[in-house]
Design a protein around this nucleic acid. Structure first.
Lengths: 163, 163
DNA sequence: ACTTGTCACTATGATTATCATAGTTACGAT
DNA sequence: ATCGTAACTATGATAATCATAGTGACAAGT
């Protein structure tokens, strides 16, 4: 593609976010990182993205201060990628995307009755559905407050991808 | 690009959203629609995207049921684009993106003290900052509950683009 | 009547990001 | 010495994106 206009200096906050988040691969990698996948190969396998793309996007995310590369072993060099505070704060965006999809992106009965991904408020045990405020106790919900559980169908799909 | 793997049939809700939202142009166009820009040329001018791209993405958004094309005049054919309910429900995603950017994407003092975009809770008049729950009255916040006001710098930038 | 202007696009050609596949480096285990 | 694994890099084909220009339909001004 030709050089697209850079949005990192616009005053519009959505424009600035879009510069990073308006990219399929970035979104998929972030999802996996929030899911607890930290290793290169695990991310590549689960997202279905090629290693070159994963490599390029992880470098970009590191440059943007959203992930940190951490060597957990040196003998054979092994790295893992972790979300920084700036990265963890993107949870709200991913959670909003998930909520929208649960409400609109599935055919009737496609998920087998419930959401594709359930979230439980750790503090009070309530299933929060797609809410941004816990329907049980009224608390605002952020990363760390919630425990995610994939539906059987989603779990099976992920298992198939990593095999 | 070669044909990328289609994610519209994954069980992962973030994957399904990413298929639509993992695209810079889609995000920018949605932002403008939420901002009240309904006309083709206004969107093209403000986003800085070429007419071909705007045309292609509006067609996609219409196909996905996110926007509706509405003829408001026939003599010279004139159309406008409106968000459907499914589209309006994407407000949470854009609002989360805006919140993240306000917190992380600006240099110290770059916006002149306040956020680049202020949001006021219509019901109680409180400036909600980047919260998902009104700090004044505790209500959950959605599209329609908020009144957005761009900062002087952002307003000037938009005026320059449309001129 | 003729030009100018606006809106909503479509057409063209150059550029470059993305994909699939294969290869590389470093090491540990058999 | 070969096999396997993790984390990448290299290569070449494909196709999406951009800038620029052009089209069709009409309205208004001169």
């Amino acid at each position: 593609m030709p050089r697209r206009t850079d949005l990192s200096d616009t005053y519009c906050p959505v424009g600035r976010s879009a510069e990073l988040l308006g990219d399929r691969a970035v979104l998929l990698i972030l999802r996996d990182l929030f899911f607890g996948r930290r290793r290169f190969e695990a991310i590549a396998a689960n997202t279905g993205l090629g290693p070159q793309l994963v490599s390029a996007r992880l470098k970009l995310l590191e440059k943007e201060g959203v992930v940190e590369r951490h060597a957990y072993q040196d003998k054979p060099p092994r790295r893992e990628y972790r979300l920084t505070d700036k990265g963890k704060d993107l949870f709200g965006v991913l959670y909003a995307m998930r909520g929208w999809a649960e409400r609109w992106a599935y055919a009737e009965g496609e998920t087998g009755g419930g959401p594709a991904m359930r979230y439980i408020h750790r503090a009070c045990g309530t299933d929060v559905g797609t809410a941004t405020v816990c329907p049980g106790c009224g608390a605002a919900l952020g990363y760390g407050d919630l425990k995610g559980e994939p539906s059987p169908a989603l779990k099976a799909e992920q298992a198939a991808r990593s095999g």
